[in-house]
Design a protein around this nucleic acid. Structure first.
Lengths: 162, 162
DNA sequence: AAATACCCGACTGTTTTAGTTGGTTATATA
DNA sequence: TATATAACCAACTAAAACAGTCGGGTATTT
């Protein structure tokens, strides 16, 4: 179990899907704009999320991604594991001949704690996060901002588009 | 809150202190041998652990480090935070003008979850880890290994030391 | 005086992050 | 059927973090 900003990006993007994915697939460029993440980086992350069968994709215009399962059935631990690509658990099993548990003792000390963290994050679902009041507040603000941006775009179009 | 092998090293080393620190200060070279971590790297980590006032040091021969507080009063979250040097929380407050919470919304989404993880790890103390049966088993094995190593050293000395 | 062991800064090689570039392929729509 | 959209894909880059090394210092015990 590893926790970096990469996992944060993935969780944030999935949370965005859970918040906006009701009416159909969401394009990555939408998520990129709303959550301020580079589009190409999102593509890399979603490639992994798709391999892990956490999302499904629809190609072509109007396409995008949607959650592969219900938001109550997707948990934070899965998302983080999907983008962090397992990483041989610890640096054991290499040169030190750690087979049969003879050496490599530090490994056990940590992996035990790591398991606990994993169990903890497996208990937090996307719907659980969505239900939180503060998250809804943020989503609301993002929605208002989006509308404002669309409004500006329309006005530009009226003044004289390409 | 970040979770990498760096934090694992720090927690493991602190656990070693909790296990062996009863009879006096423990030298870093002892920990380096037992836990198979580079001595110089440990020095860097303990520099930070000392700044965070999680350990205190004794210089000179017979010196080393000891826990600054009781092992029931030192928690995993503190240790990890100490070596990961905070990292401006998230990448906000830089170019995007995230003051007053207007922008930088993704930040809130994540930091909320991050807080939960933090609270969770704040509930796990060193003494809590020490009390675990499997940890004691590992410590016992390490102790036996240590005795065996000392035995070999003695024999070498008898045969003809420097 | 000598050995121990903390303390400190600078340096190195490797891996991971984060992002870029430049495409190809599938598909809805006009 | 042409076009725009948006997923897909691979290779590349800059910057940071990780893990460790090196060469010194300083305090303290024996």
């Amino acid at each position: 179990m590893r926790l970096t900003t990469k996992g944060r990006y993935a969780v944030t993007a999935m949370l965005d899907l859970a918040l906006h994915g009701e009416k159909g697939p969401i394009s990555l460029s939408d998520i990129a704009q709303r959550q301020d993440i580079s589009l190409s980086y999102l593509e890399q992350l979603f490639s992994k999320l798709r391999q892990a069968e956490l999302v499904s994709s629809v190609r072509g215009p109007g396409g995008g991604y949607r959650l592969a399962r219900g938001s109550d059935d997707i948990h934070v631990a899965e998302i983080i594991d999907a983008v962090n690509e397992s990483v041989d658990a610890t640096n054991c099993g290499r040169g030190s001949g750690c087979a049969s548990g003879e050496k490599c003792l530090t490994h056990h000390l940590w992996s035990d704690l790591s398991d606990q963290i994993h169990v903890f994050l497996s208990g937090i679902s996307l719907s659980g996060l969505v239900a939180r009041a503060d998250v809804q507040q943020v989503a609301q603000r993002q929605h208002e901002k989006e509308l404002a941006a669309q409004d500006i775009e329309q006005k530009i179009e009226i003044i004289g588009g390409p």
